[in-house]
Write a protein that binds this DNA or RNA. Structure first.
Lengths: 105, 105
DNA sequence: CAATCACTTCACCAATTGGTGAAGTATCTG
DNA sequence: CAGATACTTCACCAATTGGTGAAGTGATTG
């Protein structure tokens, strides 16, 4: 299930901060690591998880690695959330109908 | 961070199926366990994770335990997703503006 | 060419996670 | 009251995860 791996990728505070940061624009590994008290190997792993989940792209520029977000990866989450809320919104609608016209059904 | 624990709760396929199932209506532990090749102790753990993440409510009815979804728990996710997409939508808007009127800026 | 910089890969560790079977606790049924 | 039912708690296990320091790779700088 690709959706669960997306959620797994977002389940870590460092990784959540990374995608929030990348939503503001590209950044190198070093720039991503700086604000967190974390070593580069750890950051390499975190970004690796995000790449494997299809949420981040890496491209090499000289000796630096520039990371950017793949926004499409979140549309799946949005769609799932939409399906779910759609369901209970109709439930609430039906409930409101019943409260408004208790004579029916 | 409560958002990361929400994502962590959704990062497991069984748990994702549980909340999808509960979005359709309440269910007992046994009903939740049935479709998955999983024992009741495992299901107790999974539902426990969802309860700790504030996504599910449990109430005892006789000797059964009825679980229901707390939809508010997902509004946080929706808000975060909204913030993120808002950012890159304005970026795309600005890009389109520049393409449309290259004389400006 | 030597040193430095920006990473990545490797080997390892401690903590967490998802699973189990066995035993315990209420609640209902005959 | 004696099962049976619907869980929960417990002790345990194997696999995964997030972290580290040390060593390796390739681009840049003096």
């Amino acid at each position: 299930m690709p959706l669960t791996s997306t959620f797994a990728a977002l389940a870590d505070p460092t990784r959540l901060a990374i995608v929030t940061r990348l939503s503001r624009g590209e950044a190198t590994m070093g720039e991503l690591a700086a604000p967190h008290r974390i070593t580069l190997p750890a950051m390499t792993k975190h970004v690796g998880v995000l790449v494997d989940a299809g949420m981040v792209k890496r491209r090499k520029v000289g000796r630096t690695v520039v990371c950017s977000l793949r926004p499409e990866s979140l549309s799946e989450v949005q769609a799932w959330l939409g399906d779910l809320t759609a369901y209970w919104n109709t439930t609430i609608d039906r409930l409101e109908d019943l409260l408004a016209n208790p004579e029916e059904s």
